[in-house]
Design a protein around this nucleic acid. Structure first.
Lengths: 129, 129
DNA sequence: ACGCCCGATGATAATGATTGTCAAAAGCGA
DNA sequence: TCGCTTTTGACAATCATTATCATCGGGCGT
């Protein structure tokens, strides 16, 4: 049975409130600074659960796992700012079918794919100029 | 100045001789089994150098960094077998321009992207049936 | 409302990959 | 060959993440 705890809710909320992708460690510190006595292990567990249930997306960057709340149940990709972490959800039907075709072409089955675009968002581009 | 050492050559060769993506640890064990007294740290350094120089591609999976020798100087992506690690280089001009367009559309600059397709290769698909 | 059972929590230790350190061991030009 | 400099490699250090396990508390049955 799955239980409702204030910790899980806190993680969900903190995730939803952040602009871009966040690391588990960062989310934990952030919660701690807000006064939450939540444990690090719990944050990891909560994030892992959210990702499994489709309420969050995760991606690996430089050895860290980053998470972001996102519309549940839909398949999409992200456009991510290298500087501030801002993430925009993007549709990629063209890429979806392309990936499937390429896989089939080479005899691969059960194809999944990783597609993420990185860059500097408008704001950060301006700041760097 | 960059020096030519047998260690660097050994890593390059071992990488070129392997079928798919390999982890640094795996490459190290493999070299050791072949009698090479090469150090683990050296393997990491060599792989990192090769990746920087464009002689190898790297990707992150499940917290590990995987490497693969590939044609230098060209930009391409991979179709990777989840089971045996077999990797096929694929062209993706359509995706290249798509990524650039999407980035520009949202005001992002200096766009780069990560595109990898995972699946089971023909051989492994057969075995799993 | 009460009590009990079992999943959830959290401090801490453990793990596993990777990087830093530094003395000793080669490259390479002179 | 000589000497300077980079590279190596054993080992310690670091970092994110996971496992452990005693304790806590949610929520169902009563």
């Amino acid at each position: 049975m799955k239980r409702n705890t204030w910790q899980r809710e806190a993680v969900r909320e903190a995730l939803g409130g952040s602009e871009g992708f966040v690391s588990a460690q960062a989310l934990h510190s952030s919660l701690r600074e807000q006064g939450s006595p939540i444990g690090l292990a719990t944050v990891y567990r909560a994030l892992s659960d959210l990702a499994t249930e489709g309420e969050a997306d995760s991606l690996q960057q430089e050895g860290e796992a980053l998470y972001r709340a996102c519309t549940p149940g839909t398949h999409h990709h992200h456009l991510i700012c290298r500087n501030c972490g801002l993430a925009v959800e993007i549709e990629a039907d063209a890429v979806e079918s392309w990936a499937k075709d390429v896989a089939a072409e080479h005899g691969f089955t059960e194809a999944s794919h990783v597609v993420d675009v990185f860059g500097y968002c408008a704001e950060c581009s301006a700041k760097r100029a």
